[in-house]
């Protein structure tokens, strides 16, 4: 059954149909939450909240990219979580460790067919990038995750953050510059192969 049919059924209250949509999109939605919030537990909460909100607000979905619509909801859930943290900052009982803070090294994230060395290198790079992402202002972080991690184009990203395309363009450029400066301190982590990965357009 295609996505449009599942959405139609879900709108009529068919929870099974909605859950099939959840299974289809949950990794992308979770990725958005994890990259913006930087913590696995908080990202899981935001993702679950987003799907509940999506089910309840399904009548307001007006067509277009369903994934984009979900990403908008989870992005708003992330903003809510960050606002909550600002209002009630909490100190963790224990320092954040590899198991709860850093999703990159968790076993379920190992890619199939990787050698241990490649896996370690990839995890290190991902950890460095996440650390730099965490240092960005949240508005920049959201845009860079939408465009560079989720692969959205500027127009789709602008719809998700409800800002003009020009705002996406300038935020993205500034975010990339800051990421560039930050990643310089992890320079040796950037593999040479990666530098040659892309050709100029």
């Amino acid at each position: 059954m295609d996505e449009a049919a599942l959405i139609r059924l879900a709108r009529k209250g068919d929870l099974d149909a909605f859950n099939r949509l959840v299974l289809a999109h949950q990794d992308r939605v979770f990725t958005q939450a994890y990259r913006v919030l930087g913590e696995v537990d908080a990202a899981e909460d935001a993702t679950q909240e987003a799907f509940i909100a999506a089910y309840r607000k399904l009548h307001s979905y007006r067509g277009g990219s369903f994934r984009g619509w979900l990403l908008r909801i989870v992005t708003n859930a992330c903003y809510d979580e960050l606002r909550r943290r600002q209002r009630r900052p909490v100190a963790p009982l224990e320092p954040a460790g590899a198991d709860d803070r850093d999703g990159e090294s968790l076993p379920w994230m190992a890619a199939a067919g990787e050698t241990p060395e490649e896996a370690v290198q990839r995890a290190e790079l991902a950890r460095a990038i996440q650390e730099c992402l965490d240092r960005l202002p949240v508005d920049f972080r959201v845009v860079v995750v939408l465009v560079d991690v989720q692969g959205m184009d500027y127009r789709a990203a602008a719809e998700i953050i409800a800002r003009p395309v020009g705002t996406v363009r300038s935020r993205l450029a500034r975010a990339r510059r800051r990421m560039q400066d930050c990643l310089q301190s992890f320079g040796e982590l950037l593999p040479a192969a990666l530098r040659l990965q892309e050709e100029a357009p």
């Binding site: 899981e44 994230m109 991690v149 950037l190």
Partner: peptide, 15 residues
């Protein structure tokens, strides 16, 4: 190079 590094981030599989 920065853009490529960012785009190398995988989609995180939810646990």
């Amino acid at each position: 190079q920065t853009r490529a590094a960012l785009r190398s981030l995988p989609v995180v599989r939810a646990r």
